[in-house]
Design a binder for these strands. Sequence first.
DNA 1: AATGAATGAGGCTTCATTCAT
DNA 2: GATGAATGAAGCCTCATTCAT
Lengths: 235, 235, 235, 235
Amino acid sequence: MGAVKGKRVPRAVREQQMLDAAVITFARHGYRAASMDGIAELAGVSKPLVYLYLHSKEELFSAVIRREAAALVAAVTAAVEPHAPADRQLWSGLTGFFAHTAAHPDSWAVLHQQARTQGEPFAHEVAAMRAGLVDFVADLIGAAARESECAADLPAREVAGLAHALVGAAESLAEWANVPPEGAGSDDAPPADPRAAAERTAATLMNFAWTGLHRMMTGERWGPGVAAESPGVGD
Amino acid sequence: MGAVKGKRVPRAVREQQMLDAAVITFARHGYRAASMDGIAELAGVSKPLVYLYLHSKEELFSAVIRREAAALVAAVTAAVEPHAPADRQLWSGLTGFFAHTAAHPDSWAVLHQQARTQGEPFAHEVAAMRAGLVDFVADLIGAAARESECAADLPAREVAGLAHALVGAAESLAEWANVPPEGAGSDDAPPADPRAAAERTAATLMNFAWTGLHRMMTGERWGPGVAAESPGVGD
Amino acid sequence: MGAVKGKRVPRAVREQQMLDAAVITFARHGYRAASMDGIAELAGVSKPLVYLYLHSKEELFSAVIRREAAALVAAVTAAVEPHAPADRQLWSGLTGFFAHTAAHPDSWAVLHQQARTQGEPFAHEVAAMRAGLVDFVADLIGAAARESECAADLPAREVAGLAHALVGAAESLAEWANVPPEGAGSDDAPPADPRAAAERTAATLMNFAWTGLHRMMTGERWGPGVAAESPGVGD
Amino acid sequence: MGAVKGKRVPRAVREQQMLDAAVITFARHGYRAASMDGIAELAGVSKPLVYLYLHSKEELFSAVIRREAAALVAAVTAAVEPHAPADRQLWSGLTGFFAHTAAHPDSWAVLHQQARTQGEPFAHEVAAMRAGLVDFVADLIGAAARESECAADLPAREVAGLAHALVGAAESLAEWANVPPEGAGSDDAPPADPRAAAERTAATLMNFAWTGLHRMMTGERWGPGVAAESPGVGD
DNA sequence: AATGAATGAGGCTTCATTCAT
DNA sequence: GATGAATGAAGCCTCATTCAT
C-alpha cells in the first residue's frame, strides 16, 4: 500500500493498512474468492499478523463493512446543508453520496455488491446502514410534504416506497456514473472535476424524481387508465 | 427436483432439472459457496452427469444466467402492450418485470445479486441483458419525447442517465417489494393477488418518475439555486 | 498397508484400511501429533478420500476407538469359559485380555494411552468400555463371594474398588508384559508362545490378587496397626 | 497465578510461576494442544520471557516433568516410616502417594497421562521415575521375603512383575479415588479428611494385594487347574 | 527484567474435476 | 444414460519461535 514495506509499525497503523488491502481485495474478487493470502500480501504483512489483529476472515470482512459504511454515512452527513429547504438538503446529501462513491469505488463495491450478497452476518450490517439512509430520505420527503401547503396525506408506506425507489435510483446511478461513458480507452480523458460531476448526477436525479414527488404531494397521481387525459407525456 | 428420482430421463429434461437446482443453489449460497455436489444432489443426479451435460461450474453458471435472463426479458416483452402510448407501455413492462421477479425470486437473485458480483465472464452477460432493458426504457423515453409536442432536445446521455435511474429504481423496488412490510409473522397474510401487487408497485414507480420526466421534456429543470422560486416543494 | 496400492477398492475395504492406518498413527504419535496426511499416506490413499469416508479427524478417531474397543471386548468375552467357577472365569478372561493386548499393541496404546488423554468426546467412549470390563470383574468378585460359604457382606463400593484395582493392575501388566525383559536386542528371542505368555501373566495376576480377595471374603483385613500379630509377612 | 501481575520479579520466582502455569495447561489440554501463548498468559508474563527462561516448549515440558516427578518421589519418600516392617513401610508409602496425587491432580495428570503419551524425550523421564518407585516396591517385597522365614525363592522377574502390578493398581486407584463416588452433585460433600481418605485407599490396596503376596512367599500358587481343591474361592 | 511486533511452517478441510465401469 | 471411486490444488487458521526495543 502507500506506506513503505518497513517493519515494526504500530498496531493501529497496521490495522488500517490491512483494512485498506481488504477493501480492495474484497471489492474485486468478492468475499469467498478473496484469499487471506492475497490480502496479507497486498497489505505487505504476513498472514499470521492479519489473524493476530483481525481474528478471522469473517471478522475482517465485518470490520471492513463497518469502517466503509461509517465513512459513507459520514460523507453524506457532512455534505448536507442543515438549514436549507428539504429539496436542497436532499440534493446536497446526494452530491456527497455521489462524490464519495466516485472517490472510493472499491469501498462502494464492497458495500453495495459484496456485503449484500453474503448471507446473514454481513447483509444485516449493510442493510442497517442503508436503512439509515432510507430513513433520512423518507424524513426529507416528509419534511417537504409538511413544508408544502397542500401536504395532506402521504401514507407512511408510500413514503417509504418512494424513499426506497430514490435510494435505489441513486445506487444505480452511482454505479453508472463510475463507468466511462462509452468505449473509453485506458486513459481517455482526465476525470475532469469530480465534484462537479457529482453535483450534476445529483441534479439529474433530482430532476427525475423531485418534481414527481411534488406532484404526488399535491394529490396528483399517474394511473394506467388515465394516461391520455392526464398530464401524461402526450398532452 | 419435483421429478421422481427415476432413471433414463431424456437429456433435455435432465438439463432443465440441473439448471433448476443450480438456480436455487446459486441464489442461496452465491457462486463460490455453491458446490457442485450440492447442485447434483438437489438435482437428483450424480456429479459426473452434471459434468457430462454442463461441462464445468463456469459453464453451468453461464447457462443459468442465460436461461434466467432470457426468461426475464421474455416476461417483460410479453407484458408490454405494443400499441399503447409510451407511458402505458412503460407501466405494463414494469408490471411484467415486478410480476416475474416476485414469482421467481431465486432467478432474480442470481441475476441481480450473484452474477453481477462475480468477475468478468458473468457480470458481462447480465450487463448485456440489463443494457437491453435500459435501451428499451430509453427508447420509450425518447418516444415519449417525440410524442410530446414540446420535446425539443433531450441529449442522449441525459436520456441514458434517466433510463438508468429508472431501471435502478425498479430493481430496488423489486427487492423491497419481495420483503414482507414490517414484522410479518410466519404466515401473516396470503400473498393476496401477486398480479395486482405488481401493478401497484409499477404505478408507484410511475408516479415517482413519470411526471418528473414529463417536466424535463418541457424544458423545466430542478436546480440547486432555483429551488425557492421554482416549482420546488415549498410553493 | 497389506493390500496392494491398487485402485478402485470398494468402500468397506478402504475404510478398514484407513482405520488400520489410523490405529498405527494415533498409537505412535498421539491424537494431536498425528497428521491426516500421514494417515492417508500410510493407508495408501489421498487425503480427500479419508475425509469423504470418515469426515473429520475427530470422527476418524472416534471410529478407531469404537472399533478397537469392540475388538478388545470381543476378545475378552470370547475367552471366558462361561460355566467355570468364578476364579477360573476371571483367569480365562484375563488371559484373553493379555493375549489381545499383546497381539495388538497399537490398538491397546490407542485405547489406554491416547483416547483417555484427549478431552471429552473420546475419554468418555473408552471409559464406557472400561466400565464394562470393571463391572464384569466386579460381578465375578461378587459371584465368588456368593460361591464362598462365609461370604457375608462385601459392601458394593469396596467391591468396586477391588475391581478397579484389579483392572488397573491388569492394564499395568499389559504394558509391562509387552516390553522385552531387560536390554533385549532388536530380535533377541522369538516371542515364544504368545498364548502361554498371556496365561502366565494372567496367573501372576491371579496369584497376586485372588488369595487376597479370598481372605477379604472371609472377613480378614490387613491393617496398619495389626501388622505384627496378623498374618503379616514377618511371622 | 496467585502473584500480582507486578513487574521486576526475581527470576527464580518467575520460573516457578511459569512452571505452575505450565502444569495446569499441560494437564488440561495435553502437550500438543497446550499453547505457549496460553501458558504465558496464565503465568502473567509475555511469551518472550518464557522463552528467555525455559528456551522451548520441549524444555518447558521436561522441566515440568522433572519438577513434578521429584515432588511426587519426595512425597512418597517422606511418607514412609523407615524402621517399620516392610508391609507397614509399603502402606505408609502408598498413603503418601495417594495423598499427593489427590492434593495435586494436575501434577499427577501431567505425569501419568500426558508425559507418557508423548514420544521419547518425555516418556523416558517419567518412566525413570516410575522405575524408581517400582524398584522401591520390589525392594520392599524382597525385604518382606527375607523377613519371612520361608522366603525361599521368589525369582527376580516374578518380583518385578508383582511390583509392576502393585504400582499399576495404585495408579489405577489414584485415578479412581479422585473421582466422586457416584452421581455426586456440584458440591455434594466437602472432601472430608483427605489424609484419612488416602490411608483408606492404601489399606484397600494392601488388603487386596498383601495377603496374596504373603501366600506366594510361602510357596503357594494359584493355578487354573487347581482352583477346586486349592484355597480357591469356592472351598 | 521485560515486551510489542512479526513470521515460516504446517495442519485440517473442501472443492472442482476425472476415470473406469 | 449413469455412477462409485478417487485426487490435485488451494484455502483458513494456529503455533512455536524470534527480533528490536
